[in-house]
């Protein structure tokens, strides 16, 4: 239970920054925007290109999307791994775990269900 240690007086609201200097804060958003635009451009490029091995494209797109979400979290939402952010990060981790279960579980279950017991209109088409 050590990760549930107490939040101290300095615990942060999600979205609040430790930095107070305006110039540094603006710079943070600029870096975030630049990285996000770069990753977005890469995603669009990868999706349309014929230069890379085609089956790797979906994987690449997912990796790029996750990277970009990370950029947004750190530079725009200021969710970092600092000790003052413990509760925020734990809540995020729980949420992501549920998202993973719902999406992954649904796709896995539904693919097996479709395999063994196809939906009605597919059965009709088979007949």
């Amino acid at each position: 239970m050590s990760e549930l240690s107490d939040h101290s007086d300095t615990s942060f609201a999600p979205g609040d920054e430790g930095e107070h200097d305006v110039g540094a804060r603006v710079l943070g958003y600029v870096i975030g925007l630049a990285l996000a635009l770069l990753l977005t451009a890469t995603s669009f490029f990868v999706a349309g290109t014929t230069l890379v091995w085609q089956p790797s494209i979906p994987v690449a797109l997912i990796v790029l999307a996750i990277a970009q979400m990370g950029v947004h979290l750190v530079f725009f939402l200021h969710i970092t791994t600092g000790p003052d952010n413990t509760n925020n990060v734990l809540a995020l981790a729980f949420g992501l775990f549920i998202v993973f279960l719902v999406v992954g579980g649904s796709v896995w279950i539904m693919s097996h269900l479709n395999q063994n017991m196809p939906p009605m209109d597919q059965i009709m088409r088979m007949q």
Binding site: A13, P14, G15, A91, G95, V102, V103, S106, V107
Partner: peptide, 29 residues
């Protein structure tokens, strides 16, 4: 209070993301 409010809203956002995940799941299927 600022931390309490921000955290509560953070929890709401996570629940909203879970809701989106259902639509994503339906789309994927």
């Amino acid at each position: 209070k600022r931390v309490v409010t921000g955290f509560g809203f953070w929890i709401f956002l996570l629940s909203d993301i879970v809701m989106f995940s259902c639509f994503f799941a339906a789309y994927a299927v």
